[in-house]
């Protein structure tokens, strides 16, 4: 079974993003970029399937600028067999991204697609579900455990009420939540080895993907900053203050 995993290039999760003063977006020049953390978990899960003999090939896919090759190199260094970059300088919305994945699914015929449950830049959380819809296949979102059992998979999902386990027939789409696994650290020799692994490139036109009608961003603003308060010196001061505010 082939497993396709998504690798989005995003602003690193440790960066405190700054909204541009003209409201046109956030400043990304010179900011550290990384693999979306949820995608790293998706890659790790696919690699573990491969070492458990449940998958034969792990293909990392990124849709974005040429610089996204860096993130694909990370995926290759982690152990992915090959990578595909669908190169575009446009900011694509989830529906278009899902269409790209669908085109690649048609080409590659994977048994499973694992994507992060959301990207930490736009926090949209739509692509996996949309791909499953376009493909007319099952989806198991917010996965914290996946067991492949022949032609189907048992997936435990993190839901508001706790944990839910569902069974899905393959092929299917899984979206990775934080507790699915802990991604491995990439070691230097792996980075060297990864340089020899192939990255294929495509364009949207080559894949025949039509860009979906987009939501138009009108303005971006910083949230109202919370006024930091003050420190109290003792428990009794804390209690007095909370009583004062009518909170206890």
């Amino acid at each position: 079974m082939k497993v396709l995993v998504g690798v989005k290039r995003v602003v690193d999760y440790n960066v405190r993003v700054q909204v541009k003063p003209d409201g046109s977006g956030v400043a990304t020049e010179g900011v550290k970029m990384s693999v979306n953390p949820f995608d790293e978990i998706a890659i790790e899960e696919a690699l573990r399937m491969k070492s458990a003999g449940k998958a034969d090939e792990v293909i990392a896919v990124s849709i974005g600028p040429q610089a996204a090759q860096e993130q694909l190199r990370t995926a290759l260094a982690m152990g992915a067999d090959r990578a595909i970059l669908v190169e575009t300088d446009q900011t694509l919305e989830p529906l278009t991204v899902a269409r790209v994945f669908k085109a690649l699914v048609d080409q590659e015929q994977p048994g499973l697609v694992i994507l992060g449950k959301q990207a930490i830049d736009d926090d949209a959380g739509q692509t996996p579900q949309m791909l499953a819809a376009l493909w007319d296949r099952p989806q198991a979102t917010f996965a914290s455990k996946v067991e492949i059992e022949g032609e189907s998979a048992k997936v435990t999902r993190e839901v508001d009420l706790g944990l839910e386990t569902i069974e899905i027939d393959l092929p299917a789409v899984i979206s990775a939540d934080l507790r699915l696994n802990e991604p491995r650290y990439v070691k230097l020799p792996d980075i060297m080895k990864a340089k020899k692994k192939p990255i294929g490139t495509h364009t949207l036109e080559e894949l025949g993907v039509e860009i979906a009608p987009a939501l138009k961003p009108v303005k971006t603003e910083a949230p109202q900053a919370r006024q930091g308060g003050h420190k109290v010196e003792s428990v009794s001061e804390l209690v007095a203050e909370l009583k004062n505010k009518g909170l206890i």
């Binding site: 602003v11 993003v17 909204v19 956030v26 830049d121 926090d123 961003p217 009108v218 971006t220 949230p223």
Partner: peptide, 17 residues
């Protein structure tokens, strides 16, 4: 919200959609 709520974006859905 985007970026964990650190950038709030106002968006317009295309007319008629």
């Amino acid at each position: 919200p985007t970026y964990a709520g650190n950038a709030l974006v106002t968006v317009e859905v295309p007319e008629g959609q």
